[in-house]
């Protein structure tokens, strides 16, 4: 808990905040841009706003967003001799890995919440849609919070290993593309990829790409199991790497 509190202090004045707020807002605006320009309203109301915002967001911007957050959170450790100070503290490697991943996963969760609120805002304020989005959308948002944890752990591990800010982001972009292709070919088997898991969850109920439009209990169970297993395996692997890794000379 102390390691996590320490990580939260590091978020003060961090560039992570503009990403957490800006990325979902921009994507929701981009999704609605055509209708806003034409002065039309979305054909299927809330479902259309959701599909054009969250559907696209789940394809690759979500993975890129998590990767940027990972690079930002680890960047400060690669500066000066902060790495030496971090590794010379009595905090165990597991605590360090869990705290960093929790911060990235937490910021990602905030991003999902802001995405939902942005969909709500654009539907109400720009398109004057009636009522509220389907409760299913809120459930998918909650599921997305859980389903993006393995990607957050993996990106945290990559940014821990690489001093480069951009390379982990490029990895996320490529892996996200491959994972979407794998989802189309292999279905839920591609949930072993944290990026595939995030994309599959974001597309739930949209009927686009890899989704058939109806959400089954099997789909949700597969997502939850993949998220839990992926998180545990990736945390353990990242901890083992950190524990045995030498600092740079």
């Amino acid at each position: 808990m102390d390691a996590l509190t320490a990580e939260l202090i590091k978020l003060k004045r961090s560039l992570a905040w503009p990403i957490v707020i800006g990325l979902p807002v921009v994507l929701v605006l981009a999704g609605a841009a055509t209708q806003l320009a034409d002065g039309t309203t979305p054909e299927d109301g809330w479902d259309t706003v959701w599909l054009q915002s969250v559907g696209f967001y789940g394809l690759f911007p979500l993975a890129v967003g998590i990767a940027v957050l990972g690079s930002l959170v680890w960047r400060v450790e690669h500066r000066g001799s902060n790495w030496n100070a971090l590794m010379s503290s009595p905090a165990s490697s597991l605590r360090i890995v869990v705290a960093k991943a929790a911060v990235i996963a937490g910021l990602t969760a905030l991003m999902q919440i802001i995405l939902y609120l942005s969909v709500l805002a654009i539907g109400k304020l720009a398109f004057s849609l009636e009522g509220m989005p389907d409760s299913q959308h809120l459930s998918i948002t909650a599921l997305l919070v859980v389903a993006t944890v393995p990607a957050a752990v993996l990106q945290s591990g990559l940014s821990m290993l690489m001093r480069s800010f951009a390379v982990p982001i490029a990895v996320a972009l490529l892996a996200s593309g491959f994972s979407t292709a794998a989802l189309m070919v292999a279905g839920n088997a591609a949930l072993v990829s944290p990026y595939g898991l995030a994309t599959r969850t974001a597309l739930l109920g949209t009927g686009s790409f890899v989704d058939e439009g109806t959400i089954t209990g099997g789909d949700v169970a597969a997502i939850l199991i993949a998220a839990a297993l992926g998180t545990v395996v990736l945390v353990l692997c990242t901890t083992a790497v950190l524990e045995h890794r030498d600092t740079r000379v």
Binding site: A6, I9, K12, G80, N82, S88, A91
Partner: peptide, 24 residues
């Protein structure tokens, strides 16, 4: 210990850096 360059998070104040140490 203090190895090579001095540690410290540049975007934080001295007090915030010490708060980190206190927590950790």
């Amino acid at each position: 210990s203090l190895i090579e360059a001095p540690p410290g998070y540049a975007h934080l104040t001295g007090a915030e850096n010490m708060a980190l140490v206190k927590r950790l």
